[in-house]
Design a protein around this nucleic acid. Structure first.
Lengths: 219, 219
DNA sequence: TAGATTGTTAATCGATTAACAATC
DNA sequence: TAGATTGTTAATCGATTAACAATC
């Protein structure tokens, strides 16, 4: 257990490594080098080695990394080797889509409670879960040991939901609403906002065209 | 038109500035300082000023930034002042949720075509759009001047869909499938993967607890 | 004028990359 | 042994922040 501070950039790359490793594993690849991983991810091999070395000596000089072993190790680092209960507020289109994605069962992360403010929603079932009213939020989160809250309500309601999550004692929030949330420092917030993503993508349209995009006619 | 290279970090902050500015605008705030924006976003005011100064002199010394003017300018920078047509492949739960989010009409970005491989889906309507078969993809993208493709299919199909998007001539792809895509360099790919987001969030659980989280009993 | 706040330069900080001894 | 590849140190690169003259 090294007391070294790991940068957020490193932590964000770990799930991506895991993604590629799972893919290699599914194709029965036994061993992979940082070079090979770098190719697949458009990342510098030295960076990958350095990232992994923060957490231990997972590779073998002259050989590379054992795929299944590295998967196991990264899963441990990300705490995916133990169950993680998640609650979701907002049983609209997006919320329901996420609930149905409980494919990530294999990663031990599971949405175990769904809430909504709308009386018409309450009591309906989504992928085996009954939608609960907001006044059951705190007791459910405590009783089911829920650590993370997902917010899929409209932007105007998001802060209010966040406050209730924090009050109920969650440690992290994943916010899909297009708004900034203010919470106590010890609660971590990640944003998953596709509008933002789409906007930054829009910036780059034609951007490369300004350099040398004079397509030679190939007829 | 300065020939300066803008870093990706800067571009990714612009939509977030826009979010906050729209919020201020909705509450009839006329003017905002970098200090105030920094407070709301947990960002250094100097960074905000520097980010904006890459694109022009939008502020007034001693006063701050005019909210509506800055919104207009950022929208121009992100090319949100002109229509941007988007196509989506994968009319499952998530795909339908995104189509129904065409709230972002006000930003001129609009999903104008939806495709799916499953015959059972084809012909059905989602938020006014008819789901089309994949063999109509290229002609539709060309005909409707679609610049961006959204992928909401399972991971194993994602690369194939990406190839078709690239072949049809899109400039950017927003990929929701949990897999890395390989495309020609001039096509830009952004990833919107909540599993990844959830995993990196999981890493931080209890992390702050190791520092000094000895909650003083307050009874 | 005094106070506030920008745009920008210089200083600092941190992250990425190159290079290489260790070793499989 | 020769070739490959790690883990790690040092060098480089780039991004963030501090500081301040300009000016509203």
């Amino acid at each position: 257990m090294k007391p070294m501070k790991i940068s957020e950039a490193v932590v964000r790359r770990l799930p991506v490594y895991l993604q590629v490793l799972n893919d290699l594993n599914a194709r029965d690849v036994q061993t992979v080098s940082s070079q090979e991983l770098g190719n697949r991810l458009d990342l510098n091999p030295a960076q990958i080695r350095k990232d992994l070395a923060y957490f231990g000596d997972f590779g073998r000089k002259g050989i590379g990394y054992d795929v299944t072993y590295l998967i196991e190790k990264i899963r441990q680092i990300l705490k995916l080797d133990q169950p993680l209960n998640v609650a979701l507020v907002g049983a609209g289109n997006l919320g329901r889509a996420l609930c149905n994605y409980n494919t990530y069962l294999k990663d031990n992360m599971k949405i175990t409670a769904v809430f909504d403010v709308h009386p018409s929603m309450i009591g309906s079932a989504i992928n085996g879960l009954t939608v609960l009213p907001m006044d059951k939020l705190k007791e459910t989160i405590v009783a089911r040991n829920i650590r993370i809250g997902i917010i899929t309500v409209p932007a105007v309601e998001a802060q209010h939901v966040a406050d209730q999550f924090v009050d109920a004692g969650v440690d992290g929030i994943l916010n899909f609403a297009p708004t900034i949330l203010r919470v106590q420092d010890q609660v971590r917030i990640h944003y998953a906002n596709f509008t933002t993503e789409l906007m930054s993508l829009a910036y780059y349209l034609d951007e490369e065209g300004e350099e040398d995009h004079h397509e030679p006619d190939l007829d």
